[in-house]
């Protein structure tokens, strides 16, 4: 990893921990942003962790850009020594893969896609040499995913698959972004999956839809009453494939205020994970499902 610092105008510093994505780069970015938060450097107005980088917004009337840069470089040493464990949550997200709504949408934007003759799922299965859509869904929902960034639009999580690199699913983004994506679409671009928190433009491939709202500006939904955004960087997600009746039931439960996400607190250790990825993922699932 080769950390690179650059100013984004007179109010931001952009720090690229690594050019390529890895859990190690994400952990370093997260621990550096934690260090910035704890150090309470004057003039810092926003601390934004991302996948393999982060950004600090600051007020140059309170701290000069050069001083801000020096403070961040000083913290890099501390962050490198930080232990790579994380107290976080593991959450089950139900997904209706191959749903009618994303299907209708993707058919409307076929001319913007690499392979207009197939669906997004068929294309994803093919470019990952998985043979069939079912195999792709198994690969997508088999292992847990890390929320490595929250952003783009309000509350949208970027998710990074917790498997070794040869098994990581990679799918190019659309050739040209769509102007429409259904709310709560489970999408994928590059090596990242995401959940579109609101309806709008998007360039990721569309695989399915979750009945579980993750952003509620009115804070009416029970589990979003305390705060309107569900996800935080560091959350762990386990997709659960569901069928149409289960989807409809979950939507009805959300509307009736009866839906509660299945989630558990968990401590994640990057070192232990890397020693035995599949074994560690089974342990995480054990925590989630209580076995």
């Amino acid at each position: 990893m080769n950390t690179r610092y650059s100013f984004g105008g007179d109010e931001h510093i952009f720090v690229e921990v690594d050019e390529e994505m890895s859990l190690a780069a994400f952990f370093k970015s997260l621990s550096m942003t934690n260090a910035v938060r704890e150090s309470r450097i004057k003039g810092v107005t926003e601390i934004c962790p991302a996948n393999a980088s982060f950004q600090i917004k600051f007020d140059p009337d309170q701290i000069s850009p050069d001083d801000m840069l020096a403070e961040l470089k000083r913290l890099e040493g501390t962050a490198e020594k930080a232990d790579s464990t994380l107290k976080t949550r593991i959450v089950e997200i139900p997904v209706l893969y191959n749903d009618p709504w994303t299907h209708e949408t993707l058919m409307r934007f076929r001319e913007r896609h690499q392979d207009p003759k197939s669906t997004d799922l068929e294309y994803a299965a093919q470019v990952n040499n998985l043979g069939s859509v079912d195999n792709f869904i198994k690969a997508h929902s088999g292992a847990p995913w890390f929320v490595s960034m929250v952003g783009f639009v309000a509350g949208l999580p970027f998710l990074y698959q917790m498997v070794d690199r040869p098994r990581q699913l990679e799918v190019p983004k659309y050739l040209r972004p769509r102007t429409d994506t259904p709310k709560l679409t489970v999408g994928h671009g590059g090596c990242f999956s995401c959940i579109y928190s609101v309806r709008g433009a998007g360039g990721y491939q569309m695989f399915g839809i979750t009945p579980m709202p993750i952003y509620d500006p009115n804070q009416q939904i029970g589990y979003l009453r305390d705060f309107m955004v569900f996800f935080r960087p560091g959350d762990i997600v386990k997709w659960k494939p569901i069928d149409r009746p289960a989807y409809d039931q979950a939507v009805a439960d959300v509307e009736a205020g009866k839906f509660a996400p299945l989630m558990r607190d968990v401590t994640f250790s990057l070192d232990e994970f890397q020693l035995d990825i599949d074994g560690y993922n089974r342990k995480l699932e054990g925590v989630l499902y209580g076995h």
């Binding site: 931001h12 050019e19 991302a50 996948n51 990074y160 690199r165 190019p172 090596c191 990242f192």
Partner: peptide
Amino acid sequence: QPFGAGSDPSNIVDACYPYGS
């Protein structure tokens, strides 16, 4: 192209965008 960035040369591993960027 770095792992995770996507295939177009204008792609990067998704990162934060400064205001005015």
